[in-house]
Design a protein around this nucleic acid. Structure first.
Lengths: 166, 166
DNA sequence: TTAAGTGCAAATTGTTTGCATACAA
DNA sequence: TTGTATGCAAACAATTTGCACTTAA
């Protein structure tokens, strides 16, 4: 069985996250490549059990323990970010997806993801003023749709990043 | 053995949170009063183990199970808020403490609370740009103490609301 | 070759629960 | 009195780890 991707000229192609692993000097085992690929292709925020399920589908010789170990390793390297949406289990997403925030529509439950550089800057400044380097952060807004406002006009500084599945 | 507080005229005085419990129609047992008092007096974000330790010091006939049950009950009633600052355990604080943000020291686990009007304004503006009225929000920063920076100089716009120990 | 990675199962950790007893209303 | 709360210990669920065996570099 080959690697996960063959480019036209026959060169083995690693997933974006696998490449990041290499860049960080990690030893690339078969299972790490598979897990990296699963992570690269994920458009949601899978927990370990789900990652294990997807990875197993690609290569059955992977154990949950390895998924746990890999996910922890990648988090330490800053390649992955752990999210806690409640429910007891940790969920992961690639850091390279960029930092984004969640605005939850309190009436419909819909979640809108957005990016905002000004917010990042402000948070970093606040941390600095308190004597800290900002390592990571999170922010969730809960709002109610403004009367009759179907879709807000493209906002100046807010980049609404398409939202990801599930 | 009496209740936890006696007012000058001999009337039993409950802690603020104990009063909230009564207001919510909860049956007030001895252990609930103690736990409510511990929560009222807490100026930090204790986890269950810590709550258990403090409650036990006041009344040794309390079990961890009861602390877990009480904390869950009060959260359902909206009297308590559960926080996740990483580290695996849930931490709690009284809802009545008002709105503030948290900066978590990733190395020590210490939590610094702060308020920031600029942040509130920005978040409200972002919500508005997306077509929403901001109902509520939360933000958590994870940072690492800047080298050699013991205590940052009093920041312009950041109001550090008493930091609470460990 | 050889230090690092993996599978497996057992061990930990945080939290919940079943059941007999104790207690607030 | 009577239904709810509690203590205790066993049950659980998510995650970690010890150890012998593979494997990437």
């Amino acid at each position: 069985m080959g690697r996960e991707t063959e480019t036209p000229d026959g060169v083995v192609g690693d997933s974006p996250i696998a490449r990041l692993c290499v860049k960080h000097g990690l030893k690339m085992t078969g299972q790490r490549r598979v897990i990296a690929r699963v992570l690269s292709e994920a458009e949601d925020h899978p927990d370990v059990e789900e990652l294990y399920r997807r990875a197993s589908a690609l290569d059955s010789r992977i154990s949950v323990a390895t998924v746990y170990r890999t996910v922890r390793l990648l988090e330490e390297k800053g390649i992955l970010e752990r999210r806690d949406f409640g429910g007891g289990r940790a969920r992961y997403e690639a850091s390279e997806n960029g930092h984004h925030y969640h605005l939850i529509d309190v009436d419909s439950g819909n979640v809108i993801e957005f990016e905002n550089d000004e917010l990042v800057g402000l948070l970093a400044r606040i941390a600095a003023e308190l004597g800290f380097d900002l390592m990571s952060h999170r922010a969730e807004l809960f709002g109610r749709r403004i009367n009759g406002d179907k879709k807000a006009s493209a906002p100046s500084n807010v980049t609404q990043t398409g939202h990801r599945g599930k």
